[in-house]
């Protein structure tokens, strides 16, 4: 009975367990891993994928998927850069406009999915192509550079000790967690992801909710894009490409289900994102060949998804209703 309970605990908290194991493993390989500086780096790197992954979590909760976030990042960053560089707009309004661009891409996805009844996978695959195409059209596929006023932001500290990007990430997480756990909107979102038909019958405006998740995802993708440009200061034609997969991986590592209804921003997605960054940092510390790093990454994501599917079947078995009354 006791082992049963232990198994159940480990399975139910597999993300956290995996997290701790990996953490300890890298610590043993490279003691420098356990430094405050390193943790700050990890968090700092995690922030932009984390922000996008939070948006992705909203979409995944409804059983959808958003493959367009990488391109949205690119398009909004390009717009932001062009407005600053060529239209001479101050940074703040330019950033606001670029967030609006993200929101717009999200709105297009939302429209196609909830009004035109297209499948999310296809819709966002198409907007991925079109949004990037549009960004390339604006830049003629030339890289965009950002002025110091933007890049210096990455060195600014909120309250004197929290780097800006980490602060933004934490705020997004806090806000998203409150929305998902404490508001009517959030709980209804879980309901929609669990059983769409029943949600409609219960009078939940499911289309509106689903639409909103794509807009949130688009908005956060743009925000993630902005956070990245403050750090790297330059956007080339491939910017953000493939980041949608990292965001999905982070959310799924954090326990979100692709079938909807299951997943949390905190601890889930946050843990997933930090885990990915931690592994990447750890691989660097352990002096692993950079060509091997993506292979290890993929293997770890695979094992997380694998554990998750085993977990689901095992938990089902453990919780199966007993007919026999002993």
């Amino acid at each position: 009975m006791e082992t049963n309970r232990l198994v159940k605990f480990v399975l139910k908290n597999s993300t956290a367990v995996l997290f701790v194991l990996i953490f300890i493993m890298f610590g043993l390989i490279a003691p420098r891993f356990f430094t405050a500086k390193n943790f700050q780096n990890i968090m700092s790197n995690a922030s932009y994928i984390g922000i996008i992954a939070v948006g992705m979590t909203f979409v995944l909760l409804t059983g959808g998927i958003d493959l367009s976030v990488g391109s949205t990042m690119y398009l909004s960053a390009v717009v932001c850069g062009k407005l600053i560089n060529e239209a001479g707009l101050p940074v703040f309004p330019a950033v606001m406009v670029s967030l609006l661009v993200g929101l717009m891409v999200g709105a297009v996805n939302a429209f196609a999915i909830t009004r035109l009844r297209l499948v999310p996978f296809i819709t966002t695959l198409i907007t991925q192509t079109i949004a990037r195409g549009f960004g390339l059209f604006i830049t003629r596929s030339v890289a965009v550079n950002y002025p110091d006023s933007v890049t210096l932001m990455s060195t600014s500290k909120v309250l004197g000790f929290i780097p800006l990007q980490i602060f933004i990430f934490l705020m997004v997480v806090l806000l998203a967690s409150i929305v998902l756990n404490r508001t009517r909107y959030g709980r209804q979102l879980y309901a929609v992801g669990n059983d769409l038909e029943s949600a409609k019958k219960a009078g939940i405006k499911s289309d509106r909710l689903i639409a909103s998740t794509y807009m949130i995802s688009g908005l956060l993708a743009a925000l993630g894009g902005f956070v990245t440009i403050t750090q790297i200061g330059r956007v080339n034609a491939g910017f953000g490409s493939g980041d949608e997969f990292d965001a999905i991986a982070a959310a799924v590592l954090g326990g979100a289900s692709l079938f909807g209804g299951i997943g949390t921003v905190f601890p889930g997605t946050v843990l997933g994102t930090v885990m990915i960054e931690m592994i990447q940092a750890g691989l660097v510390f352990a002096n692993i060949d950079i060509y091997i790093q993506p292979i290890i990454m993929a293997a770890i994501i695979f094992s997380a998804v694998f554990i998750d599917s085993v977990r689901t079947t095992q938990i089902k078995k453990l919780e199966r209703r007993n007919i026999l009354k002993v």
Binding site: Y190, A191, G193, N194, D195, E197, K201, A202
Partner: peptide, 8 residues
């Protein structure tokens, strides 16, 4: 058929 949300 029940209209309940098992995750809530």
């Amino acid at each position: 058929e029940l209209n309940l949300f098992t995750n809530l």
